[in-house]
Design a binder for these strands. Sequence first.
DNA 1: GACCATGTAGGCCCTTAGGTCAACTCGACG
DNA 2: CGTCGAGTTGACCTAAGGGCCTACATGGTC
Lengths: 211, 211
Amino acid sequence: MREAGFTTFLVDDDPAVLRSITRLLNAAGYKTKSFSSPQEFLSSHDPAVPGCAIIDLVMSELDGLHLQQALIETGSDRPIIFLTGQGDISTSVKAMKAGAVDFLTKPVQREALFSAVKRAANVDAASRQRRNESKSIGERISTLTHREREVLEYVIAGRLNKQIAASLGTVEKTVKVHRGRMMAKLGVRTVADLVRLANKAGIAPAHSVVG
Amino acid sequence: MREAGFTTFLVDDDPAVLRSITRLLNAAGYKTKSFSSPQEFLSSHDPAVPGCAIIDLVMSELDGLHLQQALIETGSDRPIIFLTGQGDISTSVKAMKAGAVDFLTKPVQREALFSAVKRAANVDAASRQRRNESKSIGERISTLTHREREVLEYVIAGRLNKQIAASLGTVEKTVKVHRGRMMAKLGVRTVADLVRLANKAGIAPAHSVVG
DNA sequence: GACCATGTAGGCCCTTAGGTCAACTCGACG
DNA sequence: CGTCGAGTTGACCTAAGGGCCTACATGGTC
């Protein structure tokens, strides 16, 4: 059910443009979904399905750049390709700075559009993979108890069990138990793997040598 | 001697523009250096000095975009701000895709220029720090002998000394010696630190479980 | 009240890491 | 030929990691 495939979300208030872009992309084998207003797109937006957005810059209700901002604020990484009839340099630069994949002018060249969509697909796949990875790691980490999590931080800081015990106000044996359970829950068997895992999850070593 | 401070490198074939931008930036406390041709800039370019380039898009000899490409090909991370009188969207998008910090139109607004330069300074400082870090790590790693380097890769893969010995066709004791010397040379005392160090240096764990 | 998760802890035992001291081989360099 | 760096290895010892079994206290849940 996550195998939704890559979809291009077209947002344009001109039905004729929607139709023509749809035909173009469908012919190239892309699945498309059309939205005639930014709100419609935003409110039905599901970050879980892979795809990119192709957005008209100038729309009556909500400006393309604002739609981009709104999308970013939802925390979505959805790659965006802008299409525009009347844009200027300053706008295009703003869009690119905000992370747009491309900024194309109408009438759009087939090849330019395809190449942009291809790049968007790559960007989407990459960010999706990063997300999945850190999500699955996060899930495993969230199964840790508070104590286990503390021990984790000390272990990746390179502290010895006895030092950790002292910092936690307990004895070495107890630390060993937490440590063993923590490693098992995270599915790693070596400190090296643990450090890499924690790195990907963005976990910092506990109060380094100072403790 | 590396304390060269942040310099803005102005590249424009119009002397009047060079003068006016220079005045503007000097007044804001920036050191500037002017080049009236791309070649002049390229040939005297020293990636070691911190700074950003402010490049006129349209120059007789070498197009701004080509200068950007040439700079990139030298392996330099020098942040680039484009200035242009007659640019179009497609050009600005190309420049931004290639990593330009900003793309401004003449006549340039003071604030726009300053804010671009500030961001360029941040970008430069960040990439400079990354470079320095991985360079100093690389230097330490280059002092390792071939054998020590091999052992390093197995250690960060989480292999036991006896496993490493088997892979290298030697005995555990020998591995311990290499391992100890390697850790000493790299200045780390725990596997956790070693893994982080290797990570920053871009060293991959050796043939994981398969070996 | 029984059950369960969590944290705690001791004993026993084996494996690993790593240090010291000593020694040998091999190729390069002067 | 002697020296040096690099790699190698052995005996010996200590410290550290970690598994197994057992046990107990607490707090919450059904």
